[in-house]
Design a protein around this nucleic acid. Sequence first.
DNA 1: CATGAATGAGCCTTCATTCAT
DNA 2: TATGAATGAAGGCTCATTCAT
Lengths: 192, 192, 192, 192
Amino acid sequence: MARPLSEEKRHSLLASALTAVATSGIAASTLSIAKKAGVAEGTLFTYFPTKDDLLNQLYLELKSDLVSHLTAGLMSDTDIMVQFHHLWTRYIDWGMSSPHKHEALRQLEVSHKITGATEQATHAMSHELQILVERGFETGVLRKQPVMFLWGVIQGIAGLVLQTAAGDMRKARECEDLGWETLWGAIASHQT
Amino acid sequence: MARPLSEEKRHSLLASALTAVATSGIAASTLSIAKKAGVAEGTLFTYFPTKDDLLNQLYLELKSDLVSHLTAGLMSDTDIMVQFHHLWTRYIDWGMSSPHKHEALRQLEVSHKITGATEQATHAMSHELQILVERGFETGVLRKQPVMFLWGVIQGIAGLVLQTAAGDMRKARECEDLGWETLWGAIASHQT
Amino acid sequence: MARPLSEEKRHSLLASALTAVATSGIAASTLSIAKKAGVAEGTLFTYFPTKDDLLNQLYLELKSDLVSHLTAGLMSDTDIMVQFHHLWTRYIDWGMSSPHKHEALRQLEVSHKITGATEQATHAMSHELQILVERGFETGVLRKQPVMFLWGVIQGIAGLVLQTAAGDMRKARECEDLGWETLWGAIASHQT
Amino acid sequence: MARPLSEEKRHSLLASALTAVATSGIAASTLSIAKKAGVAEGTLFTYFPTKDDLLNQLYLELKSDLVSHLTAGLMSDTDIMVQFHHLWTRYIDWGMSSPHKHEALRQLEVSHKITGATEQATHAMSHELQILVERGFETGVLRKQPVMFLWGVIQGIAGLVLQTAAGDMRKARECEDLGWETLWGAIASHQT
DNA sequence: CATGAATGAGCCTTCATTCAT
DNA sequence: TATGAATGAAGGCTCATTCAT
């Protein structure tokens, strides 16, 4: 009975938190977040018991959004390099089309507010990617390394490209290509 | 100007800010910084007119510290790859022996508080490195790319290694080697 | 008026308020009270239009509970001192067996939230006691004094005994006797 | 160096807290207290790290004020009853001339905010009274009982008198006498 | 110059009450 | 009637910065 929690408000709040965190870091105030979401400050706390909780949920949502964007259209039976190139393209695409998401993710990653449990939850999401990586190891295409390390390399170089491209949109294409060469050089095993 | 500003106090403050920022991010309070520096809160503001100013100075100092650590012992007439490997070793060494510095730098980089002017000032410091990179381009050893991009790759992979190694000190050596292979693969041109 | 207000829920709410107030004073939140009563927060306000109203009702109920406990088994034709001793025993009994009630009453008395009307209503309840007291004055057994004053003395000393006994249950009996001597000394006229 | 903590402001704050607590109970806001003290809200927290701390200090000050008022002019070599009567008179005098103090003390006593340490500290203050009481026991003038109990009786009856007198100032004198008879009856041993 | 008291805006969170369901 | 989401006003406390000493 009573009014049910509105999924719409929840999304408003997360969306508002997204831009707020991208703009002001985790110092963004709950009041500003609530206001931009068109909601009273108190309401924020009926959806997220704590500011930290909101940040964790936001982190989760961003990661999930990124992963699902990356894996969309991935064909698991094609050449591994092709698949990685697909991943790469999608990553840059994601970052270009929603720069706030990328920036907010960066802020959250550096913030010390993300709990171990949240981190765990993100791992569960990337099952498909994990398989791809493992196949890369087995076939000898990729240099053997911890999965998290590999993922970190991708993330790092993508971040770099996005940042570089942000300054000069016209070179975006060039930049993406450079990034791809860099990435593939970084992770492939180069056994001729 | 009876009593001049004491260089010692200035350093105390920067050192204190370093650990504070590494631990708590830029949210670290001026009070906590002053206290750990053994100085009154007001004093902090005679040395740095503003908290943001302190953060910028800290950033400058960290970058300069890093660059001078990297370039120490660099022999400009040896093989380029050897020089880069030296750089790499020194980077990891720096990060391992002073993890606070590395973490603080990360926090500052992400913080939106570093002004353009400060950023400019850091470029000036890396003259020697710039020359090395350019020689890399000319000789065709390195893939042609913006210097800042290259620098970002180094930084990103080094950060990744430090983070990975932090969790498991025993694998530090392994990790460093993996990092080097990754880095060299990322930046070298691979012309057979 | 399809469904009438349920007397059961009303009691749940008052019972819950009782322990909440005893524990946390009148600062106890309506949410906590409603929850412990197994009822939605909004429901509380259909039974009591206001938190202050709830507190007043609780006060009334506690006073009435106390008075009826005191007067139960009172034989109006025995010796006055015996009747007072009966009262005293019953008071201590009440306080010992339901310490929450006693504590809650204290909190409410001190709270400035009890209205004059509520206070009036309690007077009406103690008719039987009033008669006893007046007989005490007429026969010269009790020192002449305002009824409210006398009642205050009883309450004060009983409270003291309960508080003292709370710390050391083993001495409860001793404590009760001491209290009785104190009380009787305080109110009897001592005409030898 | 620097501006020293001003004893005057400290007193302003305690005085303001006194009336605020007397009027609104411990729910009195720190803002209202600071304002009435003519001081910024933040300032309150440089003098008292916590609201609870302020309340404890206030309690201490009130107790100390009361005790020193009671013992002033006490002649330890006169008759015990006379000394107690002196105490009684002083107590009523204190309560009459500063009703806020009395009310605030009541609020604090009931509040659950006074720590054990604070309570301890108050015991230390009443050394002189303790001696008087013990002499009362030794000489058989007082009924043997725990000191705290005796003190509670005095406090309780005094409170009652003050409350009763508050309603009808003209009867204050009468009321005080009645209180004294009640008190002495309550604590004296009545051995003829 | 060094100190730390003073300031008041701002922060996160709680709360009594209202109202849509 | 019962529910609990929605509200926005406080509440206690922290903080960067100023300024008297």
